[in-house]
């Protein structure tokens, strides 16, 4: 056969395949929700046990970088959403450019995040490696920073995967967009938005406690 089928033999049409792919992505996101959900549940249990420690620790986080990163991620999500809208044979360059923007913003996020990690390390806020804190709140604060590093680290890992996925999508679309790329782009965008939403939750949990007036 000179021309390969656009969809695998278990499907009856390209549309059929796309529906399956979309459902698969949503199920995957359900899994991810539970993954972060378990962590956030633990966070709330300990915040309930150590309210003062969590507030004190939270006030040591870098609100400026955190806010900047939130803005960056929201913008990148906007770019990705636009890219999905702009997907067509005529506008493929534009679509790829938008994806490149989102990738750039994602990288900016990671760079800022690494600066934040570095300053936290310098301020002796890394549990297990180098942790010094006001003895009044040391326990709760240590738990807070454990959650902080696990949660943001896991989120950063998801960001890297997302950047890689968007990168592949940008290359594919730039070369030859086909109907099957629409679904792939849709799934990638869904993933990217999910990672963004996780960050919004983390932002509220990490930077805001203890900063209320």
């Amino acid at each position: 056969m000179p021309e390969t089928r656009a969809f695998a033999p278990q499907f009856v049409s390209g549309r059929h395949r796309d529906e399956a792919a979309a459902l698969g992505m949503w199920v995957f996101i359900a899994t991810e929700v539970l993954l972060f959900g378990a962590l956030i549940l633990g966070y709330f249990v300990y915040r309930h046990l150590h309210p003062a420690g969590f507030a004190a620790a939270s006030s040591r986080t870098d609100l400026v970088i955190g806010t900047a990163n939130t803005a960056i991620l929201l913008t990148s999500s906007f770019a990705v959403a636009w890219a999905v809208e702009a997907f067509s044979a005529e506008t493929r360059k534009f679509c790829a450019t938008l994806l490149a923007c989102a990738i750039g913003l994602g990288i900016a996020f990671l760079v800022l995040k690494s600066f934040e990690y570095r300053s936290e390390y310098r301020e002796h806020l890394v549990p297990g490696i180098d942790f010094k804190f006001d003895p009044v709140h040391v326990d709760g604060a240590q738990l807070f920073f454990l959650f902080y590093f696990v949660a943001t680290g896991l989120h950063a890992l998801h960001m890297m995967i997302g950047i890689a996925v968007l990168g592949v999508m940008a290359l594919l679309i730039n070369r030859t967009p086909s109907a099957r790329h629409r679904t792939a782009l849709h799934s990638a965008a869904l993933y990217w938005h999910f990672v963004d939403v996780v960050w919004i939750f983390l932002f509220a949990l990490v930077y805001l406690p203890g900063r209320a007036a």
């Binding site: 150590h50 003062a52 003895p135 009044v136 709140h137 326990d139």
Partner: peptide
């Protein structure tokens, strides 16, 4: 062990932990 977790009313949280 965790002297700062429950401070008696009217006192400063001064006690060190014996953890």
């Amino acid at each position: 062990l965790l002297p700062r977790s429950q401070i008696a009313a009217g006192y400063e949280p001064l006690m060190p932990s014996f953890q």
